[in-house]
Design a protein around this nucleic acid. Sequence first.
DNA 1: CGAAATTTCTAAATCGTTTTAGATTTACAA
DNA 2: TTGTAAATCTAAAACGATTTAGAAATTTCG
Lengths: 332, 332
Amino acid sequence: MTERKQAPTLKTISQMTGLAVPTVSRALSGATDIGEKTRQRVRSVAAEIGYVPNRAGVRLRTGRSYVISLVLPTESDVMNVTARLINSSASALRGSRYHLTITPVFPDEDPMKAVRTIVETRTADGVILNQLAPEDPRVRYLMDQNFPFATHGRTKWSAQHDYFDFDNYAYARLAVQRLAAKGRRNIALLAPPREQFYALEMIRGAQEAAELAGVAMRVMDGVTSDTPTDLIEKAVAEAQTSHDRPDGIITASSAACMAAVIGIENAGLTLGRDLDLYSKEAIPFLERFRPQILTQFEDAWAAGSFLAEAVLKRIEDPQAPLRQKLDVPREG
Amino acid sequence: MTERKQAPTLKTISQMTGLAVPTVSRALSGATDIGEKTRQRVRSVAAEIGYVPNRAGVRLRTGRSYVISLVLPTESDVMNVTARLINSSASALRGSRYHLTITPVFPDEDPMKAVRTIVETRTADGVILNQLAPEDPRVRYLMDQNFPFATHGRTKWSAQHDYFDFDNYAYARLAVQRLAAKGRRNIALLAPPREQFYALEMIRGAQEAAELAGVAMRVMDGVTSDTPTDLIEKAVAEAQTSHDRPDGIITASSAACMAAVIGIENAGLTLGRDLDLYSKEAIPFLERFRPQILTQFEDAWAAGSFLAEAVLKRIEDPQAPLRQKLDVPREG
DNA sequence: CGAAATTTCTAAATCGTTTTAGATTTACAA
DNA sequence: TTGTAAATCTAAAACGATTTAGAAATTTCG
């Protein structure tokens, strides 16, 4: 439990350079009445110690918040889990003093950077994470810093932190059981990327259930549920032409499942006859679209509310009991 | 252009009650060393003038930001326009000093309240709105207050504010033209709710094009593109059994289009033969799912980036030239 | 009644930044 | 050399809230 680092301020730079605080401020903002060498010196020191203006100070003095608000009518009809998560967690903060900000992280970025910045500059009092690796460094870091957070999904250390997770192990078990009960003997799992914790859970569940039921189960390779949908279509279609073509496919998201439907129907096969599909989904859709598809409901709205509240409680009382929930699959 | 109201502070209450500022503070926070009648008086005054603690003041003094951050890996594969909008606008702020916060608004709420609060308490420096009515009071208010904002979609006053809009008029025109060119003579438009500006645009475009092409065009009633998907399915299926069943349906979102597909196929009809579907979509999906579906691409990513940047520029320079874009439909 | 204890309030300092006004130094011309 | 102008810098105040220490008023009790 490292000591939380104190962010450098203008005062820090002032002391390091021997200049007055306002001088430092004006040097950084590029005022005309600061000597060139002074400006240089201040700037380099600032860069060196990673000075970032304190938002509250700026806001108080200037009245500018440096915040843009996206006013978002809550939609009832959102297939996408992420969108639901945003909506529900923002909604859960209604009535509290808290706001929800979105911190986007790009694939090419260091995932740690965003979290570290938040903690060090105290951009936020708490954090919600998703898409977790089993030993996610962000989680490790937040735990070490004793910084309030909650996760959508679990990690290796999830006994020690707040989380909400859909029980992917149970999901996959049940999926295999039901497919086996329908007479399917050769099941393929279109799994999430293996870097993510829940992928491993899902795979484990499917394997165990397959063994118990005495059916074949394999993880589709070269493709995950996050793969662009056209590639999923292709992969599914190709799998159907192989000698041991799967007669049951389990997917991890409605988008992936839709792609699978396309691949299958394009290959001229018939759902429910030639093979069965099994999927999670955030809103009832697949099952109405193709009644043959077997589904389990993933409650993304509950996840968001739970997580937001968990973080809130954790901020208020760091010693509060852990808030953890493993959502039991409900068949759709 | 009304004067922007100055938010009341502890000082305001202090002056009104004749008490010292710290006394007021402690009275509000429920400290034990404040007399009961004093507390009552302070509280009632505070409530009366609508006192809300200044975030910057609190944050500076206590170090608490009252912000929860949702750290969001940007997804490439998001069907939903809203989710894309969030991702893209948050991303556009990367590298700037600005953050994106989400302010959810519930159907049962006064849509004005959220906006008014933002402006009065300066929760944010700028605002992005969507789902606009032709004479949206929020837009009117923001214009009157001279508060930086940009809209996804247009209004009656859009000549005077920043916006990004998909050209729904052109969309509908083209849709009807293409359906007519395929020999369709009885077209139905599954329009958005008529309260929204873009619904009117779309209807107008469809009507004009239908007249020109000499085909029948009607707006489906009792159902909009925001209606729960099961009701859309039902409505579409029923329409097919009527005596003047449509041979071409234009929808306003991929979700609505999918629902239409379900309705049609459940009714035992064949796409492309018995009738054609025409839809917008945010990512290429429908057209691959059912190649018979005619589509136009709606660039939600571009919208978010554009809007975020527009607001940024508007904050920096209220006199900056208007940033407006009417996105031309690209056929998919 | 007067001293001590208690209740209720206020003064002052602080968080980090920016702005305004003024001070100091340097450079230049007379 | 000296006075003036220009170039640099600093002191002080302010934004709004909270906290700590202490002052004033009230109550309690011997």
